[in-house]
Structure formats: structure tokens, C-alpha cells
Design a protein around this nucleic acid. Sequence first.
DNA 1: TATGAATGAGTTTTCATTCAT
DNA 2: GATGAATGAAAACTCATTCAT
Lengths: 212, 212, 212, 212
Amino acid sequence: MCPIKAWTRRKEARPQEILEAALKLFVEKGYTATKIEDIARAAGVTRGTPYLYFAGKEDIFKSLIRSLLLPQLAVGATLLQEWQGSASDLLRELIHTWWRVVGATPLSALPKLMIAEGGNFPEVMAVYNDEFIAPGRGMLRHALQYGIARGEFQIDDIEYAIEVISAPIVLAMVMMNTANSCLPKDFAAERYLQCCLAVVLNGLNTRGVSHV
Amino acid sequence: MCPIKAWTRRKEARPQEILEAALKLFVEKGYTATKIEDIARAAGVTRGTPYLYFAGKEDIFKSLIRSLLLPQLAVGATLLQEWQGSASDLLRELIHTWWRVVGATPLSALPKLMIAEGGNFPEVMAVYNDEFIAPGRGMLRHALQYGIARGEFQIDDIEYAIEVISAPIVLAMVMMNTANSCLPKDFAAERYLQCCLAVVLNGLNTRGVSHV
Amino acid sequence: MCPIKAWTRRKEARPQEILEAALKLFVEKGYTATKIEDIARAAGVTRGTPYLYFAGKEDIFKSLIRSLLLPQLAVGATLLQEWQGSASDLLRELIHTWWRVVGATPLSALPKLMIAEGGNFPEVMAVYNDEFIAPGRGMLRHALQYGIARGEFQIDDIEYAIEVISAPIVLAMVMMNTANSCLPKDFAAERYLQCCLAVVLNGLNTRGVSHV
Amino acid sequence: MCPIKAWTRRKEARPQEILEAALKLFVEKGYTATKIEDIARAAGVTRGTPYLYFAGKEDIFKSLIRSLLLPQLAVGATLLQEWQGSASDLLRELIHTWWRVVGATPLSALPKLMIAEGGNFPEVMAVYNDEFIAPGRGMLRHALQYGIARGEFQIDDIEYAIEVISAPIVLAMVMMNTANSCLPKDFAAERYLQCCLAVVLNGLNTRGVSHV
DNA sequence: TATGAATGAGTTTTCATTCAT
DNA sequence: GATGAATGAAAACTCATTCAT
């Protein structure tokens, strides 16, 4: 009825600020456990303000995912088209690009978000699968097939291999967004990717020696 | 009054039934989004009954994690102590045992549960890390060190390697508990593990040939 | 979280009590101005209880109208079928019956309710028109046509006459449900109906004398 | 800067436009269900503007009623003073004047407004009764007494007769302001008034014949 | 004057928890 | 032990009102 202190800033960045606050909290506490007022406060506004820009909590969630997903359309697809070198290097490049474009950005929150909340938002899950997961798998698939064609890779089961190769990256993104996760302290992304590629490309076994 | 009184007193597995129902729903919808009444109905009882066995919703969650975790203390530790063969075989054995004991049981729900809800239950997270993650990592670490000592494995960064190797298994467990996940249809665990071990042990590169 | 004093009564009459409280308040203050908590308190329960029986405020309103309307199906239709006497007496009988069945019961609240809120509930309005207004008009129409056929009534415009004849009754019902209405103090329904019928049947002009 | 500055300063009919918009919406949806922003938009201004002219929503409502009521003071009182002819004709004249001055103008919205909202605004209701209803009833009373004095009318209960005679007019005004009302399609006011007067003056019974 | 972003009190609605039966 | 009606604290959402521009 009688506001004590009215707004001082008026930005067109408001919606973005709200989405950023929401992302942080949804990732941290989950969708249902996050209160609108938490989001509002984290965005520096009051209870009613988010409703000026979004229809409600669910709309905030969906807009959030959408705003994360939209810029992702067609990323690094050119990388694959033009590649001339070895499949190993292509895979290295792909993984590093992936991390730069996804893992080291707010996008890295998506996997955790969708693991935790996807079941409650089937349509959002479908969009996520179609526009984020599927293209990513597609690129990996392309690289693996390229390696097989060159006689460089030997893979029995491509679909499963895609899963195996991407899992360390995905799980790292999840863990980076999880407090008290079991990730080694001072997680160094670069070294982790190196380790990941070393295992994936060469395996643990010492080169050329079969201990089986 | 009525001498028959066909009132088959419900077995004392009541608490267990409630926990099972709760596990299913917590995994499916998340902790906060799951209503006590949902749990009660799924367990075939009414709203008030869970409170006869548990102090409240949070107690159900904690009891649930505890009941999953407790039987796990010291599993397969003997495997490691007595192993005589190759490190590759030890790793194979370890992974398969892990899947049998965890992946193919209700325990497989734990990772998703803790990813989604761990942030809201730090103490539970701590227990999970201490009693589930740490021992698992410990066994993997042991196997890797065994392989290094035998000159069989070459690993620069053991802690990261542990993460890389376990990620495909963990993520598979997560996906198995996620509706509309991106897992390939008709996921065949056994073949997936094979693929996983093939990559981890030998890498993608064809044996003995360096394309780098 | 910790109810001080739990319920003492537990009735199946609860929904009815809530509807009665709601009727009183809706008529008194209007739909939007009536708070769920008002209804709850007037029904002797607390905020949450109405939601055990109704989906929400709108459902209470619709259920209310429905519960008022349902018993009305086919009322006094028999009166018309069997009538042998004069049309004047039929009209007298009809008006008195109408008052007894509607005007002197909670049903008398309907006209005011629909005048005030019908615009916001078009479907409810349609039901009200179809099941309450239309049958009533139908009976009046029948009586007037009966009178015309007998050469007893002379009416140029039946539809408008129906309106003219029913208006005093309807408006009386509205006013009876309006605080500080302009109805004469100590409104005596019986005398009002007499007056109404006197005017309608004989007009104000002294019998047989034309002052026009 | 720009010398043209085609910024046609909005006429000072602003408050009037706001009241007109408010009248339309209050009648259509009710006071509480009408949002200030609805009114503002309908008046072609924005949320804040009504507050430049009115203290708040309630003030808009009261100003509205006042602005409708004020011009009504002493309307047609002269008609009564100077009448020389028959009482029937006086009544005819009165009813037609009433319709012209009230029924065919925005004033016709008043009855519905007061029926729906009067209970929440007792002071407004009092003003309405004193300045609108009472004078109207007074004029009718005067005409009826004139007719009785002339031996032209026979009326047992003047106050009730006033109600009976005015009800068709009042209810017509209410219905004209109600969407989906049960009024016959293409309501023709003039014919309705004729019908009304025919019934009121002569009754339904054929002249001079008693069927009772 | 006019705007419209922001506020925050007030309502609706949900649901964990209690307790008479 | 079990039930489920009822509670009431808390969360989602609305909207009259304010005020910097």
C-alpha cells in the first residue's frame, strides 16, 4: 500500500537478472525447493517483480532453459565439416571446444538441472534432448565414425561408446554444480580433460602390451 | 462383535514399504515435489500412517538413504585383498561387481538422489560421500595403483582417472533412473560395461598404432 | 505445523455448510469481494478446509449455483397440465407457488447473484437461464396463453408481458437480499403478492371505467 | 528541440473519460473484479494516471455515482406540479419521462451497480436511496395519490404498488446492463413501456369482465 | 501532466502434521 | 495400529498504490 523505498534502477536487464538468480538457485536447491522470493531477493527485487516479467515460477524455469539453450543451436558443427587431420586430434579438439563452450559457461548447469527436474517437465526435457544432447551426441558420433573410417579407431558399439566418452565430461559439469561434491579439491579442468582424453584414446594399459 | 474379523494384520514390513514408495517417488519427482500423501498412497496406506513410523518427511528421506547405505559397508573389499591376477582383470571384476551390487539394485538410485537433493541435506551428503563414494573411489584407487605397480597401467593423474573411469557407470545409473533420458533404447547393461572396459583399458586407438 | 485445537465435529454436512456460508457472503458482498477465509470462518472451519471439498473459489461458486438449481428441475409443471379453472386463478396460483418455492427459500438469492456475477461466469449464466429462467418464463407464458385462449386475457405482446409480470417478484427477491434496500420496512410478502396480482389482473384503473 | 512538438495536450475531459471507462467496467464485471489498470487502459491512459485525478479506486467509484446522480436533482418535479389531465396520462407521461431521462442514458447503469455493490458501500447506497430512489418513488406516489383523489385509481397499498409499477422499468434497466440476460432479443424499449402501462393501468383481464 | 517499473500488503492455494475416533 | 478430517504455516500469485523520471 505504501512502498517505503521505490525502485532506483530501471533496466531492461531485469529479466536477465532474474533468470540468472533463478539459475543459481534452481541448480543449488532444486526447482520446487526454490521460492520465488528467494529468486527475487537474489535478483535484488521484491516478491512481486518477477511476475512483471514472467507468468510464474514455471515460466521462469522454462524461460531459463530456453535462454540457455537458444544460443547453442549449431555450435562447432563447422569444426567437423572441415576437419582434415587425425581422428584423435578431432576428438581432442571436440572435447576441448565442448568444455570451452559449455563446461566453462553457465550452460554447464543444464545437465544437473535436467537430471534433477527433467522428470517434472517432460516438454522441457524433450527440448533439452533434441537441441542439446542430440546434437552433442551427433558430433561425437561423427568423430568416431571418422576415426573408424580412417582405420584409426576400433569400436564395437558406437552408441555406447558415445555415452562412455561423454560421461566424464557431463558428470564433471554436474559435480561442479554440486556443493560438497566428491570432485577432487581444486578441480583443474584442463588437466582433467587431458586425463580423460588419455584414457579414452589410449586406455590404461601400457601401449602395445596386452596384459589380458 | 463379528467373530471372523478377517482383519489380516498388515505385516510389519510397513516401514519398508513406505521407504520403497518414497524412494521411487523421490527419484522420480524430487524430494520437495513429492507429497507425503503420494508416498502413503503408493505404499497402500493413508496420510497419517507414515507418521507412525517416521518423524516426518525429512526423517523418511534420511532413513531411506541410511537403509540403502547400511548394507553397503565393506562390500567387495575382500576382492581386493586376495587378488592375484592382472590389474586389467581386477578392474573388470571390480566394475562388474560394482554393477551387480549397486547398478542392478535399488542402490542405483542413490547417485541421482544425491545429485538432486544433496545440496539441501549436507549431513546426508556427507554420509553418502563417506560411506558410498569414498569406499568406491578407494577400491578403484587400489586397483589402479596395483596396475601401476605391476607396470601394467600408465596413469598420470590417479584421482582424475578414478573420476573418468567411474563416470560412465555412475551416469548410467543416473540415466536409468531418469524418465525420457537420452540413454540408447533397450539399454543392455552387460554390453555397456564391456564397451566401457574396452575403452578404459585399451582406448579407442587401434592397438599399438599411434595416429597422433 | 502444530494445530492447537483439532476438529471436534466431523460431518458429511461440511460441504453443505460451506456452501451455505458462501451463499450468504456472495450475496452480501459479491463473489470477488468475498475471501475464502471469510467463507471458512462463517462455516466454522479454517482456511484450508474448503479446499478439502472444493477445487477453489470458483468451484465453490459453481457448486453453489448448481446445488441451488438442481432441485428446481420440473417444479410445478403439473400445476399447469391439470388446471381447469380461470386463467386469473391459475396466475394467482402460479405466483404464490413461485414465491413459496423460490421467493421464500434460499433460491431467492439466485437473481441477485446472477445479476451481479453472471457476467463473470458465462457458463453459469447459461445454466441459470436455461434451467431457472426459461422454465419460469415458460410457465408464465403457458398461463397467459391459456387466458388468451379463454378470452379472459387481452395481451398484445406476450414476451414483454411475461417480463412485466415477473419483474415485481424478481425484484422483490433481489431487494430482500440487499441490505439497506429501498423496500418498504417490514416487507410483507403476502400482501405484496396480493398487490402485485391486483395490479396485474385488474390494473390501477377502477373497473369498467375508462379515464383515458 | 523539435519546434513542431505535435503533442496535442489531452483535453481536460480526462477525469470524465476515466469515469466513463470505470462505469462500463464496474457494470460489466463488478467493482472488486475491475482492476485499476483495466480502467486506465479503457480510458486510454496508463496505470498511474487515474491517481492524478482520484484518490484511489474507491474514490473513482464514489465520484462515479456522484457524477451520475448530481444532474438528477429535481428532474420532472415540475411535471407533477402543473399536471391537469388524467392520472393515467400522468403516469404514462411519468414513465416515459423516466425512461427518457434515466433508462436511455448512462444512468440506467445505476440500479445494477447498486444492487451488486451497494452492500459494500453503505454511504453510497444511502445517497443513492436518498437522491435517486426516494425522489422517484415520491413522484410515483404523488401520481398514484392524484389518481386516487380523482377516483380514477383504486389502490389498497400504495407503497407496494409503487414497487410493483416501478419494478418492470428497473429490472429492464438492470437487464440491459447484463450480458446474456434473459431479455427478449432486440428489446424494444418503447413497446415494452406500452406493454407495461397497459398491464399496470388496465390489467390483463378483459375490460369490465370479471372471470374470477 | 503522464508514465510504468517497482513495491508489498493481501489473497488464494498447498501440504506437512496432528489427533479424535 | 490406522484413519482421514482438520489445521495453519508457508508458498504462489495479485493488484492498488507510489514515485523517479
